[in-house]
Nucleic acid binder design. Structure first.
Lengths: 100, 100
DNA sequence: ATAATATTTTGATAATTATCGAAATATAAA
DNA sequence: TTTATATTTCGATAATTATCAAAATATTAT
C-alpha cells in the first residue's frame, strides 16, 4: 500500500470529485451512449466534460488514479470506461487506520 | 476534514517518517536534554538531525503538519516539541473510510 | 547587557505537478 | 479503405512544492 502514491492522487480537487462522481454515476452523468448501465463505469469524455478540464488532462488523471489502484479501467471498442475500485479504496482507509 | 491538505502532508517520505518516529519517540530518539520523558513530544533539532534535512526545512514541515492537524506543538523555553495528534489522525482514517 | 542556542521566517533556486493543445493511436462507421 | 470519433501520448509552459542558506526572533546562560 503506497501511501505516498495514493496521497498524491488525493491531493487534487478534480481527482477527488471524480472519485465522488463515480460513487453514483447515475446521479452525476445524465446519459451514456451504447452501454446503458454503469457497471463498467463512465467513459472519459463524460468525466472530462463534467470536470471542465481538457480531455488530455483527465485521461492523464485517470491513468494515475488507476496506477494507484483507485479506479479500474475497461475498454470496449473505442470507449474507455472507468469505475471505482471499492476494495482498494476501503483497504487504503483501513491501512491508514492501522498504520499511519 | 480537509482531504487535500492532509493528503499533501502525507505525500512526502520524510513527513511520513516523522509521523512514524513520533509513534514511539523512545525507540527513535536516543536521549533528550531537559525534559526526560516524551509526553510533549520531540524537539525540532532531534527530528531534524534524524531526517538528514536542514532544520529550516523540518521546521517548515512540522508547521504544515500542525496546520493540517496531524501534530501538536508545544513550546518550553527555547525548545519546541512536537507530538502526534492521535485523535485527528484516527479521525482522518475514519473519515476516508466513510467518505472517500 | 551580551553571547550562545533553538527555532522560525525569508528569499532563492531546483524539482515536481498541472494543464493545455497538437500529434499519434485505436477502433468504428461510411 | 478512407473518414470520423475516443483516447492516449508528447512537448511545452505555468504553478506549486522542496529545499537550502542566511537573516530574524526567542529565550536562556554568562
Amino acid at each position: 500500500m503506497d501511501i505516498i502514491e495514493i496521497s498524491k492522487v488525493l491531493s487534487n480537487k478534480t481527482r477527488l470529485k471524480i472519485l465522488y462522481w463515480l460513487k453514483s454515476p447515475e446521479d452525476h452523468f445524465p446519459f451514456q451512449h451504447i452501454k446503458g448501465n454503469f457497471e463498467d463505469g463512465v467513459c472519459v469524455q463524460y468525466i472530462g466534460e463534467k470536470s471542465g478540464l481538457s480531455l488530455s488532462t483527465i485521461s492523464h488523471y485517470l491513468s494515475i488514479m488507476q496506477r494507484a489502484g483507485l479506479v479500474i479501467q475497461s475498454r470496449f471498442g473505442k470507449y474507455t470506461y472507468y469505475r471505482r475500485n471499492e476494495e482498494r479504496i476501503a483497504e487504503y482507509a483501513d491501512y491508514l487506520k492501522a498504520n499511519l
